[in-house]
Simulated assay, not measured.
Amino acid sequence: MNDEQHHYLNSFIEYMQVEKNYSEYTIQYYRQDLEDFFLFMSEQGISALTTVEYSDGRLYLTELYQHQYSRASVARKISSLRSFYKFLMREKFVNENPFALLSQPKQHVQLPKFFYEEELEQLFQACDGEEFLSIRNRALLEILYATGIRVSECVNIQLQHIDFDFETIVVKGKGKKERIVLFGHFASDALWKYIHQARTGLMENASSHSYLFVNFRGEPLTDRGVRYILNKLIQKAALTGKMHPHMLRHTFATHLLNNGADLRTVQELLGHESLSSTQVYTHVTKEHLRKTYMSYHPRA
């Protein structure tokens, strides 16, 4: 990486951190994508960012396919470069974006996996018990399903973020944007019992803090901890496969749409900036309707 590339990469990273509020996880991907392209530039004898042309982008695209990157990875890399050059144009360092017209590979849309109501009931039954951890696990499951929040949002909930009178929680989503999510009486009862019984017990020998969900030592629960708990519940409920926490978010959205909720409301509850991110769930509900029709209609 030469001095020019190093300077503008650092400026771009700072721009994403300060102005875009992107997570460190997202920024790592951008950094890696750009460093990969800088290596390609070196191999092709392209010394300056200002001399990159559309034809160079096409050549890089061909090389990515030759290295057998998935369509999703190729699309992400091209998107990263398009954003980088858009930033360089904003800084008036370049006049054109060589990646602006570069066509990205069409991605296969994989329908989100979700739980049927019978499967969810089995999961809730797997939380039965009066032990502190069982009470916590039920509260965790109830909140994830009742609100559709991301696991990263869930583990960062503080006690002061919860309003039992209005049954709402303030969560911080992507880009540190706050939104209010709702929960019903099932989640309310489970949460109240957890906070006043189980959490108090689990925190007995731990340092004081205000994070809602804690592990068996009373320390704040992590993303990995949530995944571990949910997979243990899957095993206990005798359900097949591994459970990704996002499945509860998918289930939340799918069940709302199946029961008549409008797309805009679901979009707001999920915290999606774009309606297109929410529209994938309409395909899920249509597929569910199709399977039901094919299974039960006499002449299907």
Rank of each mutant, 00 (worst) to 15 (best):
M1N: 10
N2E: 04
E4D: 05
Q5N: 11
Q5M: 09
L9Q: 00
N21R: 15
N21M: 13
Y25M: 13
I27H: 07
Q28R: 15
Y29V: 11
Y30L: 05
Y30M: 05
Y30F: 09
Q32H: 13
D36N: 14
L39E: 15
F40M: 08
E43F: 07
G45A: 09
G45M: 09
A48E: 10
A48V: 04
L49V: 00
T50I: 11
E53Q: 13
D56F: 04
G57D: 00
R58W: 03
Y60G: 00
Y60M: 03
E63R: 15
L64S: 03
Q66T: 04
Q68N: 15
Y69T: 03
S70H: 03
V74P: 01
L81P: 00
L81C: 05
R82H: 10
R90E: 11
V94L: 09
N95P: 05
E96P: 05
N97Q: 08
P98M: 05
F99I: 02
F99N: 00
A100Q: 11
K106N: 13
Q107R: 14
Q110Y: 13
L111T: 07
K113C: 12
E118C: 02
E119M: 02
L120C: 14
E121F: 08
L123E: 03
G129H: 04
E130M: 12
E131K: 13
R138P: 05
L140P: 02
L141D: 00
Y145F: 10
T147I: 09
R150Y: 04
S152Q: 08
L159S: 13
Q160E: 15
D165F: 12
D165H: 13
K172L: 15
K174Q: 12
K177F: 10
I180P: 05
L182C: 09
F183D: 01
F186V: 14
S188H: 12
A190I: 01
K193L: 10
I195M: 09
Q197W: 09
Q197D: 11
L202P: 00
N205L: 12
A206N: 06
S210D: 15
T222C: 02
R224F: 10
R227G: 01
Y228C: 10
Y228F: 14
K232Y: 02
A237V: 03
L239N: 01
T240C: 05
G241I: 08
K242L: 08
H246G: 04
L256F: 11
N259V: 09
L269S: 05
L270N: 06
H272I: 07
E273Q: 12
S274F: 05
V280H: 01
V280E: 00
T282P: 01
H283W: 07
L289K: 09
L289Y: 11
R290A: 12
K291A: 13
K291V: 11
T292E: 15
S295M: 11
Y296F: 15
